[in-house]
Design a protein around this nucleic acid. Structure first.
Lengths: 151, 151
DNA sequence: TTCAATTAGTGGCATATGCCACTTTCACGA
DNA sequence: TCGTGAAAGTGGCATATGCCACTAATTGAA
């Protein structure tokens, strides 16, 4: 009973997902550490990168993240000069963001590290196993949890 | 291109896991809301419940969570009277925790809600699919990410 | 044109997590 | 027995996320 301190190997899908998330998150964070970015920040820079000066709302939707949470997460990246925001020309309510030249460089730098983490992980679980896992997770992300509260 | 704003369906295992985690987390949180507990707190109370007055370190290990993070997460639960801590009789460095009677009641109350969330989720993805997913996630949680930094 | 409803963000507050620097206890070997 | 190093937590600081109450800008209908 030394390390098998897991009597009830939680049947909770949410708890299991979070636990694996903490573990994997730390791994990616460790590998990305030399770049000074956290896994989340890397993902956010990437998302901005592949978008066309995306609006905050668009990013939040793509990442299935609360809009205000995105705003908070974006702050350190703007503060450090990796991202810059500007108002949309046609709708001043909309705030768009883009990477600064510095942000672009940082993304490239971090991508090299990310590749290492990604390869190391897939070498352990298998490339297809990883792909299947991502597919399953994307399926969850696409689920429509609703109806219950009597519409 | 309205809702398919996901050009690069992220290949990053970490980002995919986090995204699904946010989605699922909100679902469980919503269903658990009437109890006043968050999904994480419910999981923590449960973990304490199934343990024998577990030491903080044991809980942290089981949940693959940083010890200090556990300490922080535990605070609101202690503040609200659901959990109480006490020093181990033989080793004063060790701090053990247990549910208070109130905590036990709250856990029962929340478990009813949790069951609903769990069932609703599994009704959507399938019971075996969910089990497979948990198995895959547990496998990740059990991985040994090491060696690289030249030991 | 005017005003109510809607949309996009912001700020404040609270929890979730980590890392690091300490402090307190123990365990052990000299 | 003393002193050094390991083990278990705590506190502070920073990011990650959410919800709620608001504000600013738009859109639409009367």
């Amino acid at each position: 009973m030394t390390k098998a301190t897991l009597p009830g190997l939680t049947l909770c899908n949410n708890a299991t997902l979070r636990r694996a998330g903490r573990k994997l998150g730390r791994f990616y964070d460790d590998v990305l550490a030399p770049s000074g970015l956290k896994g989340t920040q890397y993902g956010l820079l990437y998302q901005i990168h592949i978008g066309s000066e995306p609006a905050m709302g668009a990013i939040a939707e793509a990442l299935i993240m609360d809009l205000s949470a995105l705003g908070h997460t974006l702050k350190p990246l703007i503060r450090d000069g990796y991202v810059e925001a500007f108002a949309d020309k046609d709708d001043r309510r909309v705030k768009r963001v883009r990477l600064t030249p510095q942000g672009g460089l940082k993304l490239n730098e971090a991508t090299k590290l990310w590749t290492i983490a990604q390869q190391r992980f897939e070498a352990m679980v298998g490339k297809d196993q990883a792909a299947k896992l991502r597919a399953a997770l994307d399926a969850i992300a696409a689920l429509d949890f609703d109806m219950p509260p009597a519409r």
